[in-house]
Design a protein around this nucleic acid. Sequence first.
DNA 1: CGTCTATTTGAATGTACTCAAAAGCGGTGG
DNA 2: CCACCGCTTTTGAGTACATTCAAATAGACG
Lengths: 197, 197
Amino acid sequence: MNTGTLLSNISKHINLTLKEEELLLSKVRLRKFLKGQYILQGGDICKYINFVISGSLKSFYRDIEGHEHILAFAIEDWWIGDLGSFTTQKPADYTVQCIENCELAQLSYEDLQFLYKEIPKMERFFRILTQKAYVYFQRRIIDNLSLTAKEKYLNFVKQYPQFEQRVPQYMMASYLGFTPEFLSKIRKEISFKHLKS
Amino acid sequence: MNTGTLLSNISKHINLTLKEEELLLSKVRLRKFLKGQYILQGGDICKYINFVISGSLKSFYRDIEGHEHILAFAIEDWWIGDLGSFTTQKPADYTVQCIENCELAQLSYEDLQFLYKEIPKMERFFRILTQKAYVYFQRRIIDNLSLTAKEKYLNFVKQYPQFEQRVPQYMMASYLGFTPEFLSKIRKEISFKHLKS
DNA sequence: CGTCTATTTGAATGTACTCAAAAGCGGTGG
DNA sequence: CCACCGCTTTTGAGTACATTCAAATAGACG
């Protein structure tokens, strides 16, 4: 498995020396998972923060009736996990599951605390990473509040064209907050408009 | 104005020496704002991150039709601003406005960069702060996706009873993503149920 | 080719919105 | 102290949007 993408992801925001990179990699756990496999189950403690080397995943909340509500997708060069559970080491609200076969680079909570001490810059890296995720979720809330259903769909496809190919439509519906049937109807309506224009 | 709440807010997550506290306070700008006053206008660059000493504020997105969509409220002991604009120093997506008269402790972008260098622990503090905000927004997305309108309202009141008294109902409606009329109807329905039980 | 799962379609229903009007409430001035 | 004004909340009727449920169709995989 290629850890190069991990290092270049980190180097987007901080510069590590060769020694620091080695130290980091010595703590990284590389693992493969199969499509459908769970990386984290809601209720368990999130022991690892995961960097995606290849494949795709989803994190979701399972409500009282057992319905999944997708919080986020992740593909190559993204991080995924339940950050709330990870940082507090309390039971997770969310479940993380592979959509495709995946290769992940995992950092355990203990190892990350160790790295924060040895390489304080890592603190900066995860601050920036969290800030970006925070801004993304803010945007998502606003999109939910201010866009029409059709706009939400078009916005998603425009922002994440990579996902449209790799994520089944019913998952996209869950992410956007509609039923699969309704998303199907939206898509139909949009394709009619394209034919006319 | 009392900066004690600022220091005790920070000391929840990191320990500062007296010297560090002094250095921090020397960079803090204390300011008063009146009800209705804007702290940040969408499109401007967010120059300050704000800690609320007293009063209440809202941050919101104004859509193309001019409608406000409230992203967050803030009261005493909370932080508010447009973190995306602040960290990138690019134009803000959101507007921040006082709901009541406010006393704020402001930290400028430049001063915060300086503090990160002089007191690296501050980096840790803002990482933790951002993580908590991130977890909060995640929860909000899931609540939006998984709860009924009535549940969303009850959930809000339960989680933030402080706000129910201080925030007009039409702002709460905006935050929850309903029209004011609809929120009024939900409240009526709930109060009927209480009478019966 | 057959099976399983995902997507599409349609009818009926329910949820939330729009618009318009009335009622409530706080502040100000006569 | 009351009357009036402006703003918020309530109420109701009609409408639009999104869901549910059931069934048909399409795709993927062995």
